[in-house]
Amino acid sequence: MMAVAFKPIIYEDGKGIFHLYPGLCKGCGLCIQKCPVNTIGWSDTLGVFGTPTVEPGHGKPCTACKNCQTVCPDCAILIVPIKDRKNLKES
């Protein structure tokens, strides 16, 4: 099996480390609607289809609830709670 590596853009916001994979994000915006603190908004970075990707920092601080990660149809978001930063080296 061929291993494929995706490169994330990493943001820190509130209690979460927000990893966004522009190579997967298609800019559907489903995560924006499901964020309970409205921290997710559109970014200037373009995704795989040339549409805007998303970024945190547009509302209240992230609570690391992972709703966005759950509802992303493309697995383009990974949330790691800041308290679990040590485990991040695993890939």
Binding site: A76, L78, K89, S91
Partner: peptide, 8 residues
């Protein structure tokens, strides 16, 4: 360095 990978 290994980067965190998408949660697939």
């Amino acid at each position: 360095a290994t980067l965190p990978q998408p949660p697939m």
